[in-house]
Design a protein around this nucleic acid. Structure first.
Lengths: 109, 109
DNA sequence: ACATAAGTTTCCATATATAGAAACATTTAA
DNA sequence: TTAAATGTTTCTATATATGGAAACTTATGT
């Protein structure tokens, strides 16, 4: 609940709890959270709220109507990567993937 | 370059280097890497290779032809989230998002 | 309660992703 | 070098995502 620290990794409700500290090495402030791909819609909404934007305002930034934003936020799974990039670019958020391979024996690159 | 440790986070060439240790808290073996969204195609390929699968074999797992896989691997950005999920599900890989907000003053949930 | 703002849904048109099939190219192994 | 395997591209059709517009519902505030 504090904003002081640098490199704080924030988790949202739907994120599985995970260790927080020692995550980033960058100096600049940021916050970071991992999430499952299928809760992407909630993420858009969450970041938008953090930016204090309405759906209409976000739509203007991107060049679409508020109804588009609403659809994206509710229908997260049926979205192209290009759209995702566009939205988070407008939100000035950096987006990355994280892939975990839990099982199997594999080689390390 | 070793496979011994648990919770090893592996980076690939195109990943910006970042601190590795202390990342996971889970017990099971896994490897994990972050990547920019637009190198997703390379990731599919990379994971597929780790699984020792050909494009054709991966296609069979999903129910599409090898040409589809080729397209996905080369045309990463123009892909729907649903397709991404389908592919990584077949690869038994867990996929998550990571969103960084570098700038701005915002509140923490 | 009422008015306004914010978010949602439906309808419709268009753009684009998905997909198979087959030709083509590249890599790998003998 | 040759053959087989693997990966890529092109063409085609279909399914679906994107998008606007407007009606509708749900907050928010006075």
């Amino acid at each position: 609940m504090e904003t002081k620290g640098k490199n704080r990794t924030m988790t949202l409700g739907q994120l599985k709890d995970k260790h927080i500290g020692e995550v980033g090495t960058d100096d600049r402030d940021k916050y970071e959270f991992d999430l499952k791909l299928d809760v992407l819609g909630e993420m858009i909404k969450s970041v938008r709220k953090d930016r204090h934007l309405t759906q209409e305002q976000l739509g203007e930034l991107i060049g679409v109507q508020k109804s588009q934003i609403s659809k994206l936020e509710r229908n997260a799974k049926n979205v192209t990567v290009e759209t995702i990039l566009k939205v988070f670019r407008a939100l000035k958020a950096n987006i990355k993937f994280s892939i975990e391979m839990n099982d199997g024996d594999y080689k390390v690159a």
